[in-house]
Structures are given as C-alpha cells and as structure tokens.
Computed example of a mutant assay.
Amino acid sequence: MTGYHEAFREYDQKGSILHESYIVFGEINNSEIVTIETKTVDEKSFEEAEMIINEETLLYQYS
C-alpha cells in the first residue's frame, strides 16, 4: 500500500490563506484489503476512508 498526503490552499490577492484542507490518498496493492482507516495527529479515533476502484487499480482517499 502506498500513501500520500497533500495540502490544498486557496489564497487571496494579498497572499493570505483563505481556505486550507488536507487530503490523504494512495494505492492499495493487496486485493484482500477491504477497509482503509486513517486519522490526523489531532483526531482521537480512526475514520474509514473512501475506496475507489478505477479499472484494475484500487485507490483510497480521505479528506
């Protein structure tokens, strides 16, 4: 399984951040995996991530 995290930010004309969100995503390389759970450092419990089947690739995302 591979995992990545990315920050997405929207800025105003002065360069100040208007909106900021983070997304966790990756590819699942084991077809026996049926659930992915993830959390941030600040969260106390894990939440189920969305699993996406794209042709022969199994992906997940959490935002």
Rank of each mutant, 00 (worst) to 15 (best):
E10C: 08
T40A: 09
E48N: 00
L59R: 13
E20P: 08
G15M: 08
S21I: 12
E27R: 07
D12R: 05
T2V: 05
K39M: 04
S31Q: 13
A7F: 10
K39T: 04
T38I: 04
Y11W: 11
I17V: 14
E20F: 14
S21H: 15
S45H: 05
E56S: 15
N54T: 11
Y11H: 13
G15A: 08
H19D: 12
T57A: 09
D42T: 11
E55P: 04
E32N: 15
M1N: 13
I23V: 14
E32G: 09
V34I: 13
M51F: 06
S63G: 15
V34L: 14
Y22I: 03
T38K: 01
M51W: 02
E10S: 12
Q13C: 05
I17F: 07
E43A: 06
A49T: 00
Y60P: 00
R9H: 08
L58D: 15
T57I: 10
V24K: 01
E55K: 12
S45E: 07
E20T: 09
V24H: 06
S16W: 13
E43C: 03
I53Q: 13
E56K: 14
E48F: 02
Q61M: 05
Y60W: 10
Q61D: 02
Y62T: 00
S45G: 03
H19I: 14
M1T: 14
Y22P: 01
T57N: 12
Y22M: 04
D42E: 11
F46M: 00
A7W: 13
E10G: 06
S63I: 10
S45F: 07
V24D: 05
I17T: 11
D12Y: 04
K14S: 10
Y4S: 06
F25Q: 06
I23T: 12
L59W: 14
A7G: 07
I53W: 09
Y60C: 02
K39Y: 03
N30E: 12
G3P: 03
G26C: 03
M1Y: 12
G15H: 07
F46C: 01
H5V: 06
E27T: 04
T38E: 01
Y60Q: 00
E27Y: 05
G3L: 09
A49L: 00
E50M: 08
F25G: 01
K44V: 05
G3F: 10
N54Y: 15
K14F: 11
Q61A: 04
F8Q: 04
F46P: 01
E47W: 04
S16I: 09
E47R: 07
E20R: 11
S63R: 14
E6R: 03
I52H: 08
S21A: 11
E37D: 05
D12Q: 06
D12S: 07
H5Q: 08
V34M: 12
S16H: 15
I17H: 07
N29D: 07
Y4M: 04
N54G: 07
L59Q: 12
E32Q: 13
E43I: 01
E37Y: 01
Y62C: 02
E6F: 01
S31W: 09
K39L: 04
E27M: 07
R9T: 11
E37I: 02
A49E: 00
Y62Q: 00
V41E: 04
Y4N: 08
E27D: 06
I36A: 00
E32S: 15
N30A: 07
M1E: 12
E50I: 09
I28A: 04
E32A: 15
Y11E: 08
L59I: 13
